[in-house]
C-alpha cells in the first residue's frame, strides 16, 4: 500500500482549503486502511514496521528536501538516504538492490547529479535538492526519459527501472554521451538482471537525439 504514496508528484500540488495535499490525504487514508486491516495480521512481526532507533543509537533531527518538498525527520544517524526515503518517508520508488553501491537500483539525483543513495547518510544530505523517481514527472506528464523507457520497452521486471531512469537523466545532464559505446560505458553503474540493456540504450538515444 505504501506504493500509493509514491506516484503523486508534488510540484503541481495545490494544498486544499484545509491545507491538506493530495499526498497527505493519500497517506492518511493509507495509514487508516493499514490500521484497520493489517495490524492484526502483523502482530508479532514488528521488525518489518518502522521502528524507533535502538537505545544506543545517536539520533538527529534533519531536514531533507525531496522532490521539492521539505521534510523534518528524527532519525538514527546510521540511516542511509535510501532507507530514509523508503522507511521514513514511505517513498518506495527508489529501490534497494545490493545496498553496497554495486547495482545502481538506489540511484537518485542530488543537486542534479546521480548518486547511490545506499552509500549516502541521510544526515549528510541536508540543504541539498534530492530528486527521486517520484519527482521526475510533472503532474500527469511523464518525464521524457520515462516516456522513452515505455516506448522502447526498456524493462522487464521493473525493479532496476527507477535507478536506470534516474541514472539516465543524470547521464543526459552530464553531457558526455556521443555514441552507443558512451552509453554502454556511462550506464555501467546500473545492473539489469532481466537484460533489457539494448532497449535501455535505445530509450536514452531517443532522449539524447542520437540517430
Amino acid at each position: 500500500m505504501g506504493n500509493n504514496l509514491g506516484i503523486s508528484n508534488t510540484d503541481d500540488e495545490e494544498p486544499s482549503s484545509n491545507g491538506t495535499t493530495r499526498r497527505d490525504f493519500l497517506a492518511q487514508i493509507t495509514y487508516a486502511g493499514a490500521g484497520l486491516t493489517l495490524v492484526p495480521l502483523l502482530a508479532g512481526t514488528k521488525d518489518i514496521l518502522p521502528q524507533a532507533p535502538p537505545p544506543n543509537a545517536e539520533t538527529a533531527t534533519i531536514n531533507l528536501t525531496v522532490n521539492g518538498q521539505k521534510h523534518a525527520l528524527n532519525i538514527d544517524e546510521r540511516t542511509t538516504l535510501l532507507d530514509a526515503l523508503r522507511e521514513n518517508l514511505q517513498m518506495t520508488g527508489t529501490k534497494k538492490g545490493c545496498d553496497h553501491g554495486q547495482c545502481g537500483a538506489c540511484t537518485v539525483l542530488i543537486n542534479g547529479r546521480r548518486v547511490n543513495s545506499c552509500l549516502t547518510f541521510a544526515a549528510m544530505c541536508q540543504g541539498k535538492e534530492i530528486i527521486t523517481i517520484e519527482g521526475l514527472a510533472k503532474g500527469d506528464r511523464l518525464h521524457p526519459m520515462q516516456e522513452a523507457f515505455i516506448k522502447h520497452d526498456a524493462f522487464q521486471c521493473g525493479y532496476c527501472t527507477p535507478g536506470q531512469i534516474c541514472s539516465a537523466v543524470g547521464l543526459v545532464n552530464e553531457g558526455h554521451v556521443h555514441n552507443d559505446a558512451d552509453i554502454h560505458e556511462l550506464m555501467s553503474g546500473n545492473i539489469c538482471r532481466c537484460g533489457a540493456y539494448q532497449n535501455i540504450v535505445d530509450a536514452i538515444k531517443e532522449v539524447q537525439n542520437i540517430a
Partner: peptide, 9 residues
C-alpha cells in the same frame, strides 16, 4: 574506475 554514480560521490 567505479561507476558514474560513485565517481560523482
Amino acid at each position: 574506475g567505479a561507476s558514474p554514480q560513485l565517481r560523482n560521490m
